[in-house]
Design a protein around this nucleic acid. Structure first.
Length: 843
RNA sequence: GCCCGGGUGGACAAACUGGCAAAGUCGGCGGACUUAAAAUCCGCAGCUCGAACGAGCUUACGGGUUCGACUCCCGUCCCGGGCACCA
């Protein structure tokens, strides 16, 4: 009788032990099409097409959730992403595919280091402890992971190959060093990527106001790939809004590069403009405060002090102030001029903080007649404003209706171009510039190169040494990994913590053998996580990052799943690295993730869960109390998984009750003697069988579109019918219905699904093919015909599925409540939707 | 300001392709079982009027297209996320 009670504590460990002992979810590489020597496969540089020509058919599938950052214990967001991914993995397996579903940890990073600074505990110790907790919980959730491929990015066996990849990029000219104005967090004493600075100019992590510093840094040339990163979005099955975000981030704009010459200094200054058609309206020239030439231009002149003051003020100004559009335009004249190449006019040079060093060339031609910012600046400094395109005055413009941002014919420009529509003039002017050698058509991107240097301890060491004789020298491959040394003090005191490890830093030059010092910066952890999906394919390989045959077998990832917060950075970096490695002949695909699903956040009481709010729901506590199947089903049932969802304890209890109902009904059937089909032919038996087939059809469709919430609801309906028809339906039909329910629920509640399925059939559900609904069981002989008059529902009558349009019209006209609304009126139109409704239009 | 989402009963939601608005779940109410409670099972339920048959209203708001709109188009408001002087 105790069997009648649903007890996840008994069921779940049993199956977890089976899956662990039998290594159920491990898949071996088959080494299809392996290049026997393990040599690199050369592939062309083709872009979008290349992905179509990749491996295999539907025989295998690579299902991957974004790897977790191991900090403390897993949270509800982890429960959600792995519940989604596991459901997909199980579904693919039961469609007959070999599924790769691995797990790893993005284990380098700031929180562990900050923890170390505070407590002195080595980051490795706290990270390993956290990983152990993730492992335990993932097993207790019953996630179907191939543990043989487990990896952690902080292990030398992994980061050795991160370093190897860096060397490949360095060799190919895709990694380079440059001094650049970088964002500096005075509290963390470290450089921040632009993306780590909030809109208010504060450090994303600690909130301190960000400053600017000049440092020599390593960059990766992601901008070389801007065009392909943009174009290849067309070849992947990603949510449209994620693609849009990526497109906007890349920020392609077409225009021209035009050279303005400073005769005094004999220097040419190129500018990028999207509006070469307005060149004749350029009345001044502005440089960004960070522009390296600004101070040179004024050196030794009477402008020098004023410019110096302005530049240092602008550079140290917080991002918040500087990025405020409402702020009045400020700037300082440089006391020199440049020549406008189209009309020979000498126009004054300024420095102003509204011009950005990171975009274009760090200098602009200013056209106050046709650009709002230039207009505001010209008004503030009394500079001439010239109209060169005719058009109606703009709202909010000055007395002359300027700035005018619309289109129209050119005026006051040049005989050759006046009168041309500005779009034609644009092309004509660019062509002329080109022929004169003063400019050319050009494309500019908002995307910037990827700064990967971090003055941090807990990261992957950059495998480079600096030799007095030879300069920066790559560490030879045979000397990898460059292992992270242990140190005493993790706090970055204006230099990398690694600089303190003197024994480690001092080394010899691999080229000349002379004294050399190691690079003490570590890599951005986004580098670690930009290739882990490749490593999974051949995780145990210790003679190479991977065997190309392994990548051939599994890449690209068929379904990638993760939070939308990674829509830009992580996904862009991973795409970039994939393309770069493909160009280097290391892999065959151009895109790492064929399909992407982004899941929404889980909130509690409408707010993001956080310790400070005290609204954190712990997965471990939930699993302990209700079992993993309840937790997993509830997180999927709560709503569409791509949307944010609010956690409710009561809602979860409802799901738990549902699983208990399924359990009890199944145990009842299991205890019955198996009998013949004497009682299965009754109408209720047939009804239940039909419902089961309906559920198969519904759940299958819902799984294909990630609608786990409605899939689970469909199984609930099936169980409700099992319960309702418990007395009337025959044992065979009930057995079929409950077996089906267990089978359909297995991807969401694997333990319960396996247990019930086994008790009812003696078989292992994951070895059974996904059920297929029988067509004839989905078809109904009759249905309720909806009868509308003027689009309003007036009646419902039973109709035969075979009935033709005329018959249906007749049925509708004859329906009692229809007649009440039609009598005395004229039917002007009859709309028939067979299988659904008839609409009579009356007057 | 720009870009991307979203707004449906008391709550979470469903309606996938323009065809019965509200499946399923929570909460609520009523009943069965019980000495009682819990658990479990059965039933009711958008709002208004009505004893009932039914009628009217209802998917943020205002228009439009259509025989028919939660769904498509135009405009407005509100909420969430991202970006922000990008030349």
């Amino acid at each position: 009788m105790s069997e009648r009670r649903y007890d996840p504590k008994k069921i779940e460990p049993r199956w977890q032990a089976v899956w662990a002992d039998e290594r159920t979810w491990e898949v071996a590489n088959e080494g299809l099409g392996a290049d026997a020597d393990g040599h690199v496969l050369r592939v062309g540089l083709g872009s979008a097409e290349a992905n179509g020509a990749d491996r295999r058919d539907d025989a295998s599938s690579y299902v991957l959730e974004m790897l977790p950052y191991p900090s403390g214990e897993p949270h509800i967001g982890h429960l959600k992403v792995y519940s989604v991914g596991d459901a997909i993995a199980h579904y693919h397996r039961r469609l007959g595919r070999r599924v790769l579903h691995p797990m790893g940890y993005d284990s380098f990073g700031l929180p562990a280091e900050n923890h170390a600074i505070k407590t002195g505990v080595h980051p490795r110790v706290s990270t390993d402890a956290s990983i152990a907790s993730f492992q335990t919980q993932f097993r207790s959730w019953g996630i179907s992971i191939d543990w043989s491929r487990e990896l952690a990015t902080h292990e030398p066996s992994y980061y050795r190959w991160t370093q190897w990849i860096f060397l490949q990029l360095l060799d190919a000219g895709l990694a380079y060093r440059k001094e650049a104005a970088v964002k500096w967090c005075p509290k963390d004493q470290t450089v921040l990527a632009n993306e780590q600075v909030t809109a208010e100019g504060a450090c994303e992590r600690c909130g301190a106001t960000v400053e600017v510093r000049q440092l020599e840094q390593w960059f990766l040339r992601i901008t070389d790939y801007a065009e392909r990163l943009l174009n290849d979005l067309a070849s992947i099955d990603w949510p449209e809004h994620v693609k849009t975000m990526q497109r906007n981030w890349i920020g392609r704009s077409e225009g021209a590069e035009v050279t303005f010459r400073c005769e005094d200094l004999g220097i040419d200054y190129p500018v990028f403009t999207t509006r070469p058609d307005t060149l004749f309206g350029a009345t001044f020239f502005v440089m960004a405060p960070e522009h390296p030439d600004v101070l040179r231009i004024v050196a030794g002149t009477d402008r020098e002090q004023e410019v110096r003051d302005y530049v240092s003020r602008a550079i140290t100004e917080s991002g918040e102030e500087r990025s405020n559009v409402e702020k009045p335009k400020t700037g300082v004249a440089l006391g020199r001029t440049v020549v406008n190449p189209v009309n020979g006019l000498e126009i004054p040079m300024y420095v102003a903080d509204y011009v950005l060093m990171e975009y274009g060339t760090g200098a602009i031609m200013a056209v106050p007649g046709h650009d709002a910012r230039d207009h505001a600046f010209a008004r503030a400094y009394g500079l001439p404003i010239k109209r060169v395109i005719e058009g109606a005055p703009e709202d909010g413009g000055d007395d002359n209706g300027l700035p005018y941002l619309g289109e129209g014919p050119l005026i006051d420009s040049d005989d050759r171009f006046d009168g041309l529509h500005n779009r034609e003039a644009l092309a004509a002017i660019v062509a002329w510039l080109q022929s004169e050698g003063k400019g050319h058509a050009s494309v500019n991107y908002r995307l910037r190169d990827w700064l990967i240097s971090r003055q941090r301890y807990w990261g992957c060491p950059i495998p480079v040494v600096y030799c007095e004789q030879c300069g920066a020298v790559a560490v030879p491959e045979r000397d990898l990994p460059v292992e992270l040394p242990d140190i005493e003090d993790y706090a970055p005191q204006g230099r990398s913590p690694l600089a303190a490890a003197e024994d480690w830093v001092n080394t010899s030059c691999p080229e000349c053998g002379g004294p050399a010092r190691r690079e003490t910066d570590t890599m951005d952890t986004f580098v670690d996580s930009s290739w882990y999906f490749l490593r999974y394919c051949d995780a145990a390989n210790d003679s190479a990052a991977w065997d190309p045959a392994a990548l051939h077998e599994w890449m690209p990832v068929d379904q990638y799943i993760g939070g939308v917060e990674h829509a830009i950075l992580h996904l862009m970096y991973a795409r970039f690295l994939t393309k770069a490695l493909a160009d280097l002949g290391q892999l065959e695909v151009q895109e790492p993730f064929r399909a992407l699903f982004t899941q929404g956040m889980v909130t509690k009481d409408g707010a993001k869960m956080s310790k400070s709010r005290g609204n954190v729901v712990s997965p471990a506590a939930i699993v302990e109390r209700y079992g993993a199947d309840t937790a997993r089903c509830y997180i999927l049932f709560i709503g569409p998984p791509d949307q944010d969802a609010d956690w409710s304890d009561e809602g979860m209890e409802g799901v738990h009750r549902f699983l208990g109902r399924l359990w009890r009904l199944a145990m009842e059937v299991a205890e019955e003697e198996e009998e013949g089909d004497a009682t299965t032919s009754g109408p209720e038996s047939l009804e239940l069988l039909r419902k089961a087939h309906w559920a198969i059809d519904k759940v299958s469709g819902d799984l294909r579109r990630f609608a786990f919430n409605t899939a689970i609801a469909a199984v609930m309906e099936l169980i409700n019918d099992c319960s309702r028809l418990r007395e009337q339906a025959g044992p065979d039909s009930r057995r079929f219905a409950l077996t089906t329910a267990a089978s359909l629920l297995f991807p969401f509640a694997p333990h319960l699904g396996a247990e019930v399925y086994e008790r009812l059939t003696g078989l292992r559900v994951w070895e059974q093919p996904w059920p297929v609904a029988e067509e004839e069981m989905l078809e109904q002989d009759t249905y309720e015909l909806v009868c509308q008059v003027n689009g309003k529902l007036r009646d419902r009558v039973p109709a035969s599925s075979q009935a033709g349009p005329d018959e249906l019209k007749e049925l509708c006209r004859a329906a009692p409540n229809v007649r009440a609304h039609v009598d005395g009126k004229q039917i002007v139109k009859e709309i028939v939707v067979p299988g659904k409704l008839v609409n009579l239009v009356v007057r």
